[in-house]
Design a protein around this nucleic acid. Sequence first.
DNA 1: CTTGGCTCATTAGCTAGGCTAACTACTGTG
DNA 2: CACAGTAGTTAGCCTAGCTAATGAGCCAAG
Lengths: 148, 148
Amino acid sequence: MERSVTAERASAEELAKTLRDAITRLNRRVRQARPVGDLTFSQLSALTSLQLAGALTPRELADVERVQPPTMTKIVGKLEEHGLVARTPHPTDRRQVILAATEAGRTTYAQFERARNEWLAGQLAQLSREERDSLARAAEILQRVARG
Amino acid sequence: MERSVTAERASAEELAKTLRDAITRLNRRVRQARPVGDLTFSQLSALTSLQLAGALTPRELADVERVQPPTMTKIVGKLEEHGLVARTPHPTDRRQVILAATEAGRTTYAQFERARNEWLAGQLAQLSREERDSLARAAEILQRVARG
DNA sequence: CTTGGCTCATTAGCTAGGCTAACTACTGTG
DNA sequence: CACAGTAGTTAGCCTAGCTAATGAGCCAAG
């Protein structure tokens, strides 16, 4: 490690700029590709988190989605209206509620997930194999950063 | 090129999934880092586009931001209230309006831009040099994809 | 075993951001 | 000059986010 800390900081800032630009633009493009179904992006995101976690309380889901509890109440309300999420009482603590995706929620999720990836997958398929490899490596690192 | 088209498509879909996950999460984190100033994310984004383009009509700005004209009317209205953007009449076409960042708009932009990158830069500075190189390479590819 | 403080979820009420439909002002062409 | 099209805005709607306040339930200290 011979580079100075400040040099590292400088290159990190430069990289942050390009990376954020790319991410912001990509995100917009991917969001644009949302099909005209009944689900909004936030709803789909919450459904996804629920799906991945199996089951969560509203508070936990709000934390995962980085949203305040009242906001999550609304979102879950919509999902429940659509029959995609069900509430069940907590076994021991009667204040809490357990949220889980219903069968309909799971299939809907799968459909949207596919549609959401379609545009990006199409773009990526046009890259060279080397480029895709680079992106695969980067994706891993980015996931680690995003969770850290 | 020995891999079949379908294989490429399959790996592209897999990659799209991981990549989108990473991007979505990162985007949320970066958005979270928005300082408590007066500017919302949409406003800052519009200001940025205006800044980069120099000057635009509302319609052009709406197209760049991928938003409908009435939405842009609102956003620009807020920016104007804050004195960050100014309207000037179009020299030849009196239907049109020219939007440009004011001096205050430019300095505000620079401040927010910095703050917005801070969290991400900090995270990136903790990576190894190899990892940053990987990300730099990926960022270029991603920018190309996002524009394509 | 009760009381007071905490936590969970929700409700109420606000702002911003997004949309479509409709309107006004203007351009430009037949 | 009339009229079809374009630029911008206005009106009216919905979602998403927030804070503050409320109600229900838990739990620990007396």
